[in-house]
């Protein structure tokens, strides 16, 4: 059960890498949510208020559950245009 995690912009620089790949057991994935994945991936205990999350390129909130094969992206507020 593989989960790909991406980091962008200031968050990528802060963490020091652009992506991670994690293996989870089927049992672990039954209840893995965004906040737990964030803690597992970064070692940080708190979830920044302004942090945005996308699962498979769609915005999700921090309670969303993670499924096998998901691409989960964490990033700061967007500043295009």
């Amino acid at each position: 059960m593989t989960i790909k995690v991406l980091y962008f912009a200031s968050l990528r620089e802060e963490i020091g890498r652009a992506n991670d790949q994690f293996q989870f057991s089927e049992e672990q994935l039954l209840s893995l949510d965004v906040v737990q994945l964030w803690q597992h991936a970064t070692g940080k205990t708190s979830f920044p208020e302004q942090l945005l999350v996308a699962i498979n390129q769609e915005y999700k909130d921090q309670k969303a559950l993670i499924n096998d094969g998901d691409e989960v992206a964490f990033f700061p507020p967007v500043t295009g245009g």
């Binding site: 912009a9 200031s10 915005y59 990033f75 700061p76 967007v78 500043t79 295009g80 245009g81």
Partner: peptide, 25 residues
């Protein structure tokens, strides 16, 4: 909507020599 939803990020290089990420639109 593009300004607040599309995943783009700007990093500025200042004349003064340092760089910084634009915090939000």
């Amino acid at each position: 909507a593009l300004k607040h939803q599309a995943p783009f990020w700007k990093k500025e290089a200042l004349i003064a020599g340092d760089t910084r990420w634009v915090a939000e639109n």
